[in-house]
Design a protein around this nucleic acid. Structure first.
Lengths: 225, 225
DNA sequence: CGACTCCTTGACAGCGTTCAACAGTAGTGG
DNA sequence: CCACTACTGTTGAACGCTGTCAAGGAGTCG
């Protein structure tokens, strides 16, 4: 299922969180994985770092009885597994067919030990941003009701996808639910309710497309009942 | 309320997460704050980093209507605000009377730009550990019920406090509730229920003391209903 | 003593989960 | 082309966990 290629052809421009490193093609190799297949598993040795080129990835932790908490969705340009741990702390799965670049973690950290200050700052910056996201996520999970959760999710994705008219969700309702600490039925009801209020329209097959009509009213829903 | 002193007397040994830096007394100044008073506020400029010497601190985010999510409790030895952001992303308050050391963030980061590799690794390590904690916390908040939450909280604090017999909580039930995304009544009920099961005993004024009788049964409660 | 904070417990309601049925779409194979 | 299956999403109904409201006890402090 995994195809390894050399990335000597230049890919189409993708926003990158590792701009300076990303420019060095020799540093990265390319990998294509099918939707639903694993990129890496929790507690596995973390030998590589990854950068999404196209597609989407979910990272999650799981309890022994199957309950799943998705920590983040990763889209084109995002970097995964940058934090310096010997083993991965969560599982990463492609949500749809996805292209990633990967590089030996050792090669990156060799730079740091050689005193590459810009690279060190960059890495610290990425970890900090990941932390920032997690901390905001804590507030949503611990203190917001289901409608606020779904509204917050939509606003986050709207900001990140930057698609002016219709945003097409790569993930299922269950994924959204596991991201927000609720159930797929509750997510579906919240979306229907927002459609009822004419704040958005669900379009396309499986209602994966979402047209936002009123972002400011959606933002109100995200912080008050 | 704030007292600034030079820390030329050696403090009693405290586990430190910033060992090499902590040894340099000239680097740090000492600060004593009363329980309930703020160390720094959300969105304030982040000019200092802090290290708890004695006492306990809570860091939290708050919604406009007052709902509060505590991201972490910080105990003796813990470092706060190490992540490189221009402004603090949460509020930090002393829970009880607390002694902290603080240092100009600029002085630490000046080292990093000068290529102090061990310091850079150390900082990255601290941020990563903070991230690790937040990610585990996400799972608790999103996917565990109230009994599991309280059990997980007790196990975490038991591990960190390292008091063999009775652990004395510095925080109120409300603090615990705001840490676990629930209410103080629910926390109280969970603790009573665990006492009923003879897994622990509540002791002392305000039942702030907790004697764990059966850590393994408590651990069972933390992951299954 | 009185005011205050913190904790516990009970009663009740409500939000969200659970269970179930159904619709729409895609893929497969006869 | 159609039957069949699998997957996804929506909606309804009932239950239950947890939040809300309230009362009371215990300790602290001025």
């Amino acid at each position: 299922m995994l195809v390894r290629v050399n990335s000597n052809k230049t890919a189409k421009p993708v926003p990158s969180q590792l701009s300076e490193l990303a420019r060095q093609d020799a540093f990265w190799s390319e990998l294509k994985i099918r939707g639903g297949s694993k990129l890496f598993g929790e507690a596995e040795p973390a030998d590589y770092i990854y950068q999404i080129r196209e597609g989407a990835v979910r990272t999650y932790k799981q309890l022994s009885d199957g309950r799943r908490q998705i920590g983040a969705f990763h889209l084109a340009g995002d970097v995964l597994a940058i934090e310096n741990c010997a083993t991965h702390r969560c599982t990463a799965e492609a949500i749809v067919d996805t292209t990633v670049w990967f590089a030996k973690r050792r090669r990156l950290f060799a730079r740091l030990t050689k005193g590459d200050i810009p690279a060190a700052n960059h890495v610290r910056d990425l970890v900090t941003r990941t932390l920032e996201h997690a901390e905001s996520h804590l507030l949503v999970l611990g203190r917001q009701n289901s409608l606020e959760k779904v509204a917050a999710f939509l606003l986050e994705l709207d900001r990140r996808l930057e698609q002016p008219d219709v945003m097409v969700l790569p993930m299922t309702r269950r994924d959204i639910a596991d991201y927000l600490g609720t159930t797929l039925e509750t997510v579906s009801r919240a979306l229907s309710s927002l459609q009822e209020e004419r704040i958005l329209s669900l379009v396309g097959t499986n209602h994966r497309g979402i047209m936002l009509h009123d972002r400011s009213r959606l933002a109100q829903r995200a912080t008050s009942v």
